[in-house]
Amino acid sequence: MTTSDEVSPARILAVAETDVANLGSIVAATLAHSPAARTLLAELEDEQHVPETAVQDYYHRNRDRFLTPEALRRGVDPFSVTAPDDFVPYTHARDSITHELRRAAAHRAFFDWFDRARAGVEYAVGHEHPGDPSHPDHEHRH
């Protein structure tokens, strides 16, 4: 049993590992350790409106993402001659595309908020984050 001061293994990383690369380590750490930041991100996602035309455009520009398993097994080139049944129908893909585009828009809104929120932060010498572009040695890698 853990006390309120201990961190359980399930709470160590509240952000999916695949999202860490997409978000960047500073934002991922914030989301992993701040319920308020996660709530803000969820609210931003709820606020995003994705026009139907954007969803349709995404479907047509990313044909390779919507090949059926059978078409993939046959090695169908989605940008060459194809048959309509080589693709997941738009009506089946629409909701997941909308969700993905809403999530991407929410991340952009969160990044904008995050940049404004930390604009005036001054780090103590030696405690700068090496990935922070405002740090003079931001290309330093560990």
Rank of each mutant, 00 (worst) to 15 (best):
Y123T: 12
P35T: 13
A71G: 01
V50L: 04
P133M: 12
D115Q: 11
V125Q: 04
A106G: 08
G126V: 05
G126N: 10
T53L: 14
T68L: 05
T91H: 14
E45Y: 12
T98N: 04
F111M: 09
F79N: 13
A28S: 03
A124W: 04
V125W: 01
A106T: 03
F110L: 04
W113Y: 00
S80Y: 08
A119Y: 09
G75Y: 06
D64A: 14
L67F: 12
H99W: 15
H92Q: 10
S25A: 14
R61I: 04
A109W: 06
D46T: 09
A29D: 14
Y123H: 15
G24Q: 04
T39D: 15
T91P: 05
I26L: 13
A21M: 11
L101Y: 07
H107E: 10
R61S: 01
H92N: 08
I12F: 03
P51V: 10
L72H: 15
T39E: 15
V50R: 10
V81Q: 13
L101C: 12
R108S: 11
V88S: 01
I26S: 08
D115I: 12
R116K: 15
V15L: 04
R118P: 07
D115H: 14
G75L: 05
H49D: 10
V125A: 10
R63W: 00
V81C: 11
L72M: 14
V15T: 00
V55S: 03
A54I: 05
R65A: 12
Y58R: 10
D137I: 05
G126I: 07
T53S: 15
T30D: 11
V121T: 01
G120Y: 08
D77F: 03
A83P: 03
I12A: 09
L23T: 06
R108H: 13
R94H: 13
R73S: 08
D19K: 02
V15M: 00
R65H: 14
L13K: 06
R116M: 07
H138E: 01
L41P: 08
D57M: 04
A36G: 06
V55R: 06
E128D: 08
V15A: 03
Q56Y: 02
A109V: 02
D132R: 04
D95V: 07
D77H: 09
D46E: 12
L41C: 10
F87D: 00
F66I: 00
D19S: 13
A106K: 00
G75M: 08
P69L: 02
R63D: 05
